[in-house]
Design a protein around this nucleic acid. Structure first.
Length: 328
RNA sequence: GGUGACUUAGCCAAGUGGUAAGGCCCCGGUCUGCAACACCGUCAUCGCCGGUUCAAAUCCGGCAGUCACCU
């Protein structure tokens, strides 16, 4: 159907709280699509309020994938996402429908869209711990020098204080014999196996921040504290990946008596704004993105949707037949 | 009206003669197995005017503002 004989893929992303969820359902309905969530926190069950997860009744019959598939005590990461999302996408395509990736985790989207190769053996906590230990006891620079000896290129990209990434780079070399800088460079050159349209929804920074602040207040009113208390009762602790989600780690500290609720709320708002900024930075450097400005469309979802549909038609991703299905 | 204290970036705040610590915010960026993570960068000439000095945010004088107490 499409000009390059590659399967179609629609991506709808943007900073947190721009309104992706609301738009996504309407979009999926209009083009006959199913939604695949690209959100690192909505995969967890029992984490509904803080992750701003879509409620079942909001889905309006549109199938949603990769939501509520893990327990908060489980560990989730890009690799798992890539695998599961890949399966979901191919299943959707088999059904003759269009996969619509919706979510704000840019890294995950990239992994899926460009089919980045992460293969390299499983977890090796031993080596990681050993390297982390070197940084802790001998200093970041010592570990950094070790990386410089095996992969100087990586040192141009990774800062010595970014221990997490330095460890990964060293680990990659130790396990594969290949330099991660070279591996990444080759991965970057890959063309996407999909015929995709990558939409980034955005709006004025000030308005976005207002929405974020308001949403955090709404989350508290909706019972975020209770939700986190339940998670804590389930055995969730700060060191788990799930509990590193915005809103969760702060409320956990509050529940542990480490700060006041007021302080926790202040930090959730601030850190969420910072997060939104980082997301924007990420999407700005991502190639082939199509930016949709809320203001330009009068802030109306309907007009933004029309624009998306128009672009999808131009690209041959969605056709008129499908449009008629739910039109008017 | 009088006496005293204070006045450093958007906020908090070091610095008492040698050429503006730090934190927060804001802004920009990095990112290829933890990514709602981790990390990096930029951001003032010290209320105003004048004086002393080779050199002043730091000393002196005046003005302005703020605060406290007094009449």
């Amino acid at each position: 159907m499409n000009e390059f004989n590659r399967p179609p893929l629609v991506i709808l992303t943007g900073p947190t709280a721009v309104g992706k969820t609301g738009l996504s359902v309407a979009l999926a309905q209009r083009i006959g699509g199913e939604i695949v969530s690209a959100d690192s926190m909505q995969v967890y069950r029992h984490m509904d309020i803080g992750s701003a997860k879509i409620r079942p009744e909001q889905m309006q019959g549109v199938p949603h994938h990769l939501i509520d598939i893990m327990e908060p005590t489980d560990e989730f990461n890009v690799t798992i996402f890539q695998k599961l999302a890949g399966q979901a996408v191919s299943d959707i395509l088999k059904r003759g429908r269009i996969p619509v990736i919706v979510g704000g985790t840019g890294f995950y989207i990239q992994a899926l869209v460009y089919d980045v190769d992460f293969t390299e053996g499983g977890d090796d906590t031993a080596l990681r711990d050993e390297l982390a230990d070197i940084a802790r006891t001998q200093g970041n620079e010592v570990l950094y020098e070790r990386l410089r000896r095996i992969d100087p290129e990586s040192c141009n990209v990774i800062h010595a204080n970014n221990v997490k990434r330095v460890i990964r780079a060293i680990e990659f070399y130790e396990k594969t014999g290949e330099r991660i800088s070279e591996h990444n460079a080759s991965q970057r050159r890959k063309a996407s196996p999909f015929h995709f349209a990558y939409f980034v929804l955005h709006e004025d920074r000030e308005r976005l921040y207002d929405r974020i602040n308001a949403r955090v207040d709404a989350m508290i009113e909706a019972g975020l504290v209770e939700e986190v208390r339940r998670l804590a009762d389930m055995g969730c602790t700060a060191d788990m990946v799930s509990m590193q989600g915005l809103g969760y780690k702060e409320i956990l500290e509050y529940l542990n008596g480490e700060c006041t609720l007021e302080d926790a709320v202040y930090r959730i708002k601030r850190d969420t704004r910072h997060f939104a900024k980082r997301q924007l930075t990420w999407f700005r450097r991502e190639r082939d993105t199509i930016w949709l400005d809320r203001q330009e469309c009068g802030g109306e979802d309907g007009r933004i949707l029309d624009r998306i549909i128009h672009i999808l038609q131009e690209k041959g991703i969605a056709d008129d037949t499908q449009r008629v299905q739910t039109g008017s």
